[in-house]
Design a protein around this nucleic acid. Structure first.
Lengths: 171, 171
DNA sequence: GTCAATAACTTGACGATTCAACTAAACCGA
DNA sequence: TCGGTTTAGTTGAATCGTCAAGTTATTGAC
């Protein structure tokens, strides 16, 4: 094995802080959604993704890519969400292997009801503490990281979250 | 319910990117450690934390706070790591309610063997793609977020990760 | 056109995490 | 010092995620 390139002290400090954020932020979002909407963050994200899609309907493989989930996990979760009446599954007419997950009215209502509380939590935890300039810096930095982490831009759908998007403008 | 404060377009874009990073980065770290060391990221982190502690030993409650885990989760994980021979548990002499988790030689060796590959992954995924100035910006931004997310600085132990710290300087 | 290979899921078993008790020790107030 | 409360940790059941098949449909080579 070749000699590893260790982190500099500044990099180490930045790394410790970034890791702390990546551990704590999901925990907080999870708590808020579980408490106020009875959904896990992943479940909310799935419903939100579908709600942004034309026809409130999406193929599972595309949904799996956009949510960073395995098809297996998605299948299990969709089963539960279907059982709760938030969505239905149907076979695609163009490709009979493919399933489409489609939001029910109840599922749409759930997203609409849950989004404001979620958005408020995001604002309080992420955007209130930092300046406008730092928002731009954060966006640029994450963009660079995503060039490595997600070169195909599978996760960054055009409209991936209703927090400031169609739900707001529709209401 | 009061009118929610929605995110601006720039904030929304930054948020989507940050969320993508917080989803993808842990997945990648998990894969590397699982593949090369047979450990989950959480297991590695627990071992690394203990390895940094004086006497390679730590009380469970402190360890739980520093790893953002429930005591229950920690107890289950320590049981597995103990079964693999990486650590042992003993009762504290000063407080007989408290347990101390102590690294075995095998546990120390495991951390030393696993750290370089992990550090290399962190460098490749996080620091290679961004400039020195951006490292400072990222550190500052995460520092601000942690003032809200972790006001007691429970997660940011003095030495929380051996990647660029004592393991490197000791070797 | 046929057949192998691939792709899109589903399923069930196993492993890990969470949740809700429960035990035991220490603290603390009167 | 007695008893109530808090703190530390464990345990087991239920939930959730991962992994390894398995099914069905499409694609591509010939």
């Amino acid at each position: 094995m070749t000699e590893p390139r260790w982190l500099s002290p500044d990099e180490r400090e930045a790394w410790l802080r970034l890791m702390a954020v990546t551990m704590l932020l999901p925990t907080r979002l999870e708590s808020q959604l579980k408490r106020d909407a009875g959904l896990s963050h992943f479940e909310y994200y799935v419903l939100a993704m579908i709600s942004e899609s034309p026809g409130r309907s999406m193929a599972l493989t595309q949904l799996a890519a956009q949510t960073n989930a395995s098809l297996s996990r998605l299948s299990h979760v969709l089963g539960r969400l279907e059982g709760q009446g938030f969505l239905g599954r149907s076979t695609s007419s163009s490709d009979r292997r493919a399933s489409l997950a489609t939001l029910t009215d109840a599922g749409w209502a759930k997203v609409v009801a849950s989004a404001p509380g979620h958005a408020e939590e995001v604002r309080a935890l992420v955007f209130d503490p930092i300046s406008t300039r730092q928002v731009a810096q954060l966006s640029e930095i994450c963009g660079r990281l995503l060039a490595t982490l997600d070169p195909e831009h599978e996760l960054l759908a055009l409209a991936a979250d209703p927090d400031a998007g169609s739900v707001a403008t529709h209401s």
